[in-house]
Nucleic acid binder design. Structure first.
Length: 511
RNA sequence: GGCCCGUUCGUCUAGGGGUUAGGACGCAGGAUUUUCAUUCCUGAAACACGGGUUCGAUUCCCGUACGGGCUACCA
């Protein structure tokens, strides 16, 4: 048996949201696990909805997530082109073949005429469906004479090609996730397979391309389940039923709150990312901030996404990409929609930050610090990262919570100062200050010995001295070990800040 | 409306005819850290409902309710 071939086939109609990334991820995971091929195909058959830049976005998003396709636009492969607009000429032939075999027909009804019929039916509480029951009353090659059809074709009249869905049949679909699903053809409409602009619709293009590209497994969102019956018919009529891919329809990702599936709007509304990368739209409503910009690392996003609708059946939660590849199985994909839980996403990210090597974090943290105008050397940054990484969830928090390592703190927790500072501590702190200035080695360990010794020798309380020391140095009572903080700050800086701080404390408490 | 899919703690889920229904996020409490975070411990928290089938159903079947998707010359 040949190796499997999977594909991710997004439409470049805007930024790709996290649901699309999950679909790509599952395809990628299965392809890698089975030593198969992961194909990217751009489904740009809808001229009206095409958005410039969307394809680049898809490529960049996949790259950021580490889901590189083996074949695709700009990548190459033996089954290209991988952009449907560039395959336009291919599809007509198959539509023609279907017409000749009686499985499709020309339809001359205009979009307006059909819309009217729909509206009329709706007014009567009915639904208009272009199907076997009514196609003989409409304007198409089934009702028109051959001469008339030819005349209209020659004249250049607009037409679509519709699939002639046969009546009274049961279509059985064996889905890897849903098991057996069935549809009755009497419920199905005669789908347009070729539009009047000559472009195929999703249905035709998808089947032709999946066949030509030798796709073995179709993993896609559940929104495609209802049209799968049409797809099965297409495979049959084209004579490709034997090599029809296996389907797996994924449960949808639902809104964090409220009802319905996750949408672009949910991100802005709740202040959370629903896109992998930021997207600049033409207006603020179409501009979104991505997971990358929020400060997530790719593996954490993959891990989080993988668990939305799938789980390994064990109690392990943290899986890097390689582990996901070995653990993944289609059989363990769930059937019901999964609600997007941002808190859990943050937790995954935190777990990754904690586990990552300081040196691997460096390229992520360095630009953040530099963006705030500081160019610390690498050794300093590495120590900083080691001190901070287990107390942040998102990358930007390295700066938000650790800015005082690079510049004097901007804000002082005044409430804590007035709670902890008493003017009579002044002498004690002057002595400590002096001691710190004169101490021989400015390392975490010796600093700890020195300060603790000082406190014990004078009979002070740790709870009085340490918080004030931290406040004076960092402006806050939170943060990494105070001795490690001092060691990183360095003797001169510690001296400077203490000098300034105690005066501020006095002022504050006098007012 | 019609068709299709689904329903275990608030959320993600494991499980499956007889279980104290397990884990994770979040939440609450505690221990460690004389801070914060991490880590660890503890706690509250679920089988939608009604009928069957069965000695026994959360698990199987049928309904109902609820949720979701589709119902375009969009994908």
């Amino acid at each position: 048996m040949d190796s499997i071939r999977l594909r991710f086939a997004p439409s470049p109609t805007g930024a790709l949201h996290i649901g699309g990334i999950r679909t790509a991820l599952y395809n990628f995971l299965l392809a890698r696990q089975q030593k198969g091929t992961f194909v990217l195909r751009i489904e740009d058959t809808d001229q009206a909805r095409y958005v410039p830049g969307a394809e680049d976005y898809i490529l960049e998003a996949l790259e950021w997530c580490g889901l590189q396709p083996d074949e695709g636009p700009g990548i190459g492969g033996d089954y290209g082109p991988y952009r449907q607009s560039e395959r336009k000429d291919l599809y007509g032939k198959y539509a023609q073949q279907l017409i000749e075999s009686g499985h499709a027909y020309y339809a001359f009804d205009t979009a307006d005429e059909l819309a009217e019929k729909r509206a009329a039916a709706e007014a009567n509480g009915n639904t208009f469906k272009y199907d076997a029951k009514v196609r003989h009353q409409l304007v198409n090659s089934l009702t028109l004479s051959d001469e008339e059809v030819q005349k209209r074709l020659d004249r250049g009249d607009n037409y679509t090609v519709r699939l002639a869905v046969p009546p009274d049949e049961l279509i059985l679909i064996d889905d890897l996730v849903r098991e057996r699903v069935q549809f009755h053809t009497n419920e199905l409409d005669d789908k347009v397979i070729l539009k009047s602009d000559g472009m195929p619709t999703y249905h035709l293009a998808n089947i032709v391309d999946d066949h030509l590209m030798k796709i073995t497994h179709v993993i896609r969102g559940e929104e495609w389940l209802p049209s799968t019956a049409h797809h099965v018919l297409l495979y049959r009529f084209l004579g490709w039923e034997d090599t029809m891919p296996t389907f797996a329809h994924l449960p949808l990702i639902m809104k964090p709150t409220g009802k319905g599936k996750l949408s672009k709007r949910d991100g802005a509304k709740l202040g959370i990312p629903v896109f992998p990368l930021s997207w600049e739209g033409p207006n603020p409503e179409n501009t979104f901030k991505g997971f990358r910009e929020f400060g997530f690392v790719p593996d954490a996003v993959n891990n989080f996404l993988a668990f939305l609708g799938w789980n390994p059946g064990t109690e392990q939660e943290i899986f890097d990409k390689e582990e996901l590849i070995t653990a993944f199985s289609v059989e363990k994909i769930g059937k019901s929609g999964a609600r997007f839980d941002y808190d859990k996403a943050r937790w995954f990210n935190q777990q990754y930050l904690i586990r990552m090597l300081d040196s691997d974090l460096l390229p992520h943290v360095k630009p953040i610090i530099e963006a705030h105008g500081h160019q610390p050397d690498e050794a300093f940054l590495l120590t900083f990262i080691g001190l901070m990484k287990e107390r942040v969830h998102l990358l930007p928090e390295f700066w938000e919570q650790g800015h005082y390592f690079f510049t004097d703190y901007q804000s002082l927790d005044e409430k804590m100062v007035s709670k902890k500072w008493k003017p009579e501590f002044r002498t004690a702190f002057d002595d400590l200050h002096q001691l710190l200035r004169d101490t021989e080695s400015f390392t975490t360990e010796s600093l700890q010995t020195t300060v603790k010794g000082f406190i014990n020798d004078h009979g002070y309380k740790f709870g009085n001295i340490l918080p004030i020391l931290r406040l004076g140095l960092t402006g806050t009572t939170k943060g990494p070990d105070i001795f490690a903080t001092m060691a990183l700050l360095g003797r001169a800086e510690v001296d400077r800040r203490l000098q300034a701080s105690y005066q501020r404390f006095d002022q504050l408490t006098q007012e």
